[in-house]
Design a protein around this nucleic acid. Structure first.
Length: 551
RNA sequence: GCGCCGGUAGCUCAGUGGAUAGAGCGGCUGCCUUCUAAGCAGCGGGUCGCAGGUUCGAUCCCUGCCCGGCGCGCCA
């Protein structure tokens, strides 16, 4: 029996009591079943009586007694007690608890999946770093968290498209091209240009591929460096992200919006909506009508489109591609965008509460030798995604970035993460998986199989009960991580599960000692261990972290 | 000035209104002649920033204040 099953049973008990006239309230759709911290409070507890008491017009403990009476008849429920102000403390029959191992093994990798977000078409946009330099550390947090969130949303049944918005238009690209040209000609990088080492390398590669570039005039050369430079930069970005385990469904070019006239089309739509006005020769969108702190220019007085204009066209494009929810993942230094993004939706006649969701990730700082590492792409003092991976590995990097709430700023101490000790929680979790894999290998070597059947009631040790309870939490951990857009909940859960497994392992011998024959208990525990392996592997998979069979 | 985020154990952080607020690290003490000791058990460690309010019940919700981070261009 899973917590969800128990929750359903409680709702059914309330309905039955209402039908029998013992209570006069509206039964809730679902109810919260908790694993109490104190084992004296049973296997599970619910506060449903406390919540219904007011509507029922009766004391909570009285309501609790009525529900308890009904719940005691439920198959798999061994005991129900009313405690404290009106909690129901529920003890499951040992067999009902042990059956969970069968449920998990039968479901395999599907255990934990749900349909809680089914039929939602979600566009998940993250990273979207400008192609004027390699992916730097500031964008890496979203690479790890965004990718994990994509996996979590998919596991909750959503139809997710991961998208990278590629700003290949505008003045920063011009500066990039001028920097490349200057580097190719051995001239000084322009004041407002980009100065990293990579500029020289890309310029040299372009010259090598196009030896005739020196013969071109400035305008032609600049165009060549722009096109070739962006292409090479983008290939490098894609490849470093792929090495990080992050691949997008759509790499969207800003330039395509310009080329297809979508900015004009968007302006037309906004004009129809009567949200546009002219002032000082520029065209503005009246975003203050929808809570933005100032109106935004769409088209400058010199006739150029703003970046904001492309944002409008891009939003419209996403909506026309059929996404009902657009998630933007931005760094804290861009949180000022929230108001204008929401205002864009409103100006197009949408409800931003329904179509727009902006997730803000606080800053990531690197620390080395106790000193903050400064990051500046323009100064060329860049710490790259690839550098981070080289220093601490993909698994540690992804896990380290994904295990914290995005609301919390993080310092990554390179010395600490370079040391591969159990300071790093990912090893604790991976170690549990490797330990299980080793145990299962040994079982196979001994010719012991878990078989087709087992007796769940044999899993009656407290540590076995704890492990089963923890495994039972996984589906709703995944569902809540998806609903709240908080993949760090998966990591924290895995750390808890790994600890629960290590304690089980310490207390409960699985394989027979010496030449002893395997028993029914051996087989039952092998089911439990395999179930644990499935959940650990599944959870690590949601974070994009490997589940190693050996360490 | 306005806005967003944070303030919980020595440190780093969990905790979407419930019972005695948790974990890891660090400190101290134990446990490997049989499944991986990267593990386990135990000890010590707290005015949940401060003050009010809502509630049967607040670390969680509301208001004000204090401290820290970030942001407020016809830049991208």
């Amino acid at each position: 029996m899973t917590p969800a099953d128990l929750g359903d049973a409680i709702v059914a008990a309330v309905r039955a009591a209402v039908a029998a006239g013992e209570l006069s309230v509206e039964a809730p759709e679902t109810t919260l079943v908790e694993r109490p911290k104190n084992r004296d409070h049973g296997d599970y507890a619910t506060n449903v009586a406390l919540q219904l008491a007011k509507a029922a017009g009766r004391p909570p403990r009285e309501v609790a007694e009525v529900i308890a009476g009904r719940l005691r008849d439920t198959t798999g429920v061994q005991a129900v007690e009313v405690a404290g102000p009106g909690f129901l403390n529920i003890t499951l029959a040992a067999s009902a608890q042990g059956e969970l191992a069968r449920t998990i093994v039968a479901a395999g990798a599907d255990y934990g999946r749900s349909d809680s977000l089914v039929k939602q078409r979600i566009n998940l946009e993250f990273v979207s770093a400008n192609p004027t330099g390699p992916v730097h550390i500031g964008a890496v947090r979203w690479a790890a968290v965004g990718d994990a969130l994509g996996r979590v949303l998919s596991a909750a049944g959503a139809d997710v498209t991961r998208e990278y918005y590629f700003n290949d238009a505008g003045s920063q690209i011009e500066r990039f091209a001028r920097s490349l040209l200057a580097a190719a000609r051995g001239e000084e990088i322009p004041e407002d240009g980009y100065a990293g080492e990579y500029i020289g390398e890309i310029a040299a590669a372009i010259v090598a591929a196009h030896p005739d570039v020196t013969a071109l005039d400035d305008a032609e050369a600049l165009e060549l460096f722009r096109v070739e430079g962006v292409e090479r930069m983008f290939a490098e970005i894609k490849s470093s992200l792929a090495d990080f385990g992050v691949v997008f469904d759509v790499y969207f070019n800003e330039k395509s919006l310009h080329d297809k006239g979508e900015l004009h089309a968007a302006l037309g739509r906004l004009t129809e909506q009567r949200e546009v006005f002219e002032e000082a020769g520029a065209i503005w969108l009246r975003t203050t009508r929808y809570g933005d702190d100032k109106d935004r220019v769409i088209r400058k007085s010199d006739g150029e489109w703003t970046y904001f204009a492309a944002d409008c066209a891009y939003y419209l494009d996403k909506r026309e591609r059929g996404f009902d929810r657009c998630i933007y993942m931005l760094g804290a230094d861009h949180h000022g965008y929230v108001g204008r993004l929401r205002a864009i939706a409103s100006c197009f006649g949408d409800d931003p509460d329904r179509t727009i969701e902006v997730l803000i990730g606080q800053m990531v700082n690197l620390v080395k030798d106790g000193e903050p590492v400064r990051m500046s792409k323009r100064a060329g003092n860049v710490v790259l995604l690839a550098d981070l991976v080289e220093a601490i590995g993909v698994d540690a990097a992804r896990y380290a970035l994904a295990r914290y709430s995005s609301d919390s700023p993080i310092d990554i101490d390179l010395d600490l993460w370079t040391r591969q000790t159990n300071d790093n929680p990912v090893f604790y979790v991976q170690y549990a998986h490797a330990r299980i894999s080793s145990l299962l290998r040994n079982a196979a070597d001994l010719g012991i199989s878990r078989g087709d059947e087992f007796d769940g009631s044999l899993l009656a040790e407290p540590r076995e009960g704890d492990l089963l309870a923890s495994l039972g939490e996984f589906p709703r951990i995944v569902a809540s991580a998806a609903e709240l857009r908080e993949p760090h909940r998966i990591a924290r859960y895995l750390e808890d599960l790994a600890g629960t497994y290590h304690r089980f392992y310490d207390a409960c011998r699985v394989l027979p000692m010496g030449d002893d024959p395997p028993t029914d208990l051996t087989r039952a525990r092998l089911w439990l261990v395999e179930a644990t392996r499935i959940v650990l592997a599944g959870g690590l998979g949601l974070l994009g972290v490997a589940a190693p069979e050996r360490m």
